[in-house]
Amino acid sequence: MKKNTHPLISFTPETHQHAVDGGLAAIQGMVRACMQCGTCTASCPNAFAMDLAPRQMWRLLLFGLQQEVLESRTFWLCSSCYSCTLRCPRGLPLTAAMAALKRLAGAEGDHANRKKALFYQEFMRNVEQNGRVQEMGFMCHYFLAMRDPLLPLEYTPLGLKLLGKGKLHLGGSAQRGRLGPLFAKVRSMEGAS
């Protein structure tokens, strides 16, 4: 008998305990009422660059196909324009679901997914340390975290423009450390939930 290598598609996927606010099950809950009309796909300014159209991705998600969804680049291409959220005839929080997938992929995804999450994580690390984000410090740490020597070159034209305008400077330090207690508290609350 030929072994079936694909998992059976389940319409009532198991709910797993995940570290990230309910994980897949919570995101499925956000799009449960999707009726596959495709308004989200038609409204998305970045759909042309996606491998799965948003409509298709919601379907795979509801099938419980976490790996297929996390292997897709679709949710990383969401620029939070909220066009789909505004227009969804079911009133689903689709932009929030895209962000939740970024959280899930950053926490539970493979190496490639974790690398894509670094931009957001480095930004928040800078906020945690400085209270107000320090644009230049953030970009420097982002370059280091990405370990890509060519990446800073992409920013050279912009960096020179900003330098010429006197806009590249170290920010103030009055709020440094201010957000430490709040970040720590949120970490403990999210770890416990």
């Binding site: 959280r103 957001y120 994580q121 928040m124 906020v127 999210e190």
Partner: peptide
């Protein structure tokens, strides 16, 4: 006085609670 970063568009892909708490 003493306002801090709201998390911009980076916070929601990192933490749901921080998205609102910041």
């Amino acid at each position: 006085a003493d306002w801090t970063c709201c998390g911009a568009s980076a916070v929601e892909p990192v933490s749901r609670l921080l998205t609102l708490a910041l």
